[in-house]
């Protein structure tokens, strides 16, 4: 899987909620379509996503074929301490993509 785009503020105030916006390139093949020979195209989607912050869970999601190609997601986290925010995507082929950003809490 290719590198995702991640949008997180560099600095946040302690106790504040802030938005995390992420986009990852992926076809999200729904398994509902047929190729030009009429054969079903097998499903290949990112089925789960996890975001942790300082080792604790922020947000977890289970995706279905109804999620558009190149899944985009916005959710919210609460600033507790400076640390690492880690993102994990897993797809039907078993491929897992990790990425992380540092955030400064003041």
């Amino acid at each position: 899987m290719p590198r995702p785009l991640i949008n997180v503020p560099k600095k946040v105030k302690r106790g504040d909620a802030f938005d995390i916006r992420i986009l990852i390139a992926h076809p999200m093949e729904s398994g509902q379509r047929r190729d030009d020979k009429g054969q079903p195209i097998p499903r290949e989607i990112i089925h789960s996503f996890l975001c942790t912050y300082g080792g604790e869970e922020v947000f977890r999601a289970e995706f279905f074929p109804a999620i558009s190609a190149n899944p985009f997601l916005t959710f919210s986290a609460r600033a507790v301490d400076s640390g690492q925010i880690v993102f994990t995507w897993t797809d039907d082929l078993g491929a897992t993509q990790f990425d992380s950003v540092e955030i400064t809490v003041e």
Partner: peptide
């Protein structure tokens, strides 16, 4: 099903935005 989303202890607010088919 479209999406199931779970909010952990570090979640800021129970909401999400995405794009669906």
């Amino acid at each position: 099903n479209v999406i199931h989303a779970y909010f952990g202890p570090r979640s800021g607010a129970p909401r999400l935005a995405t794009r669906i088919r």
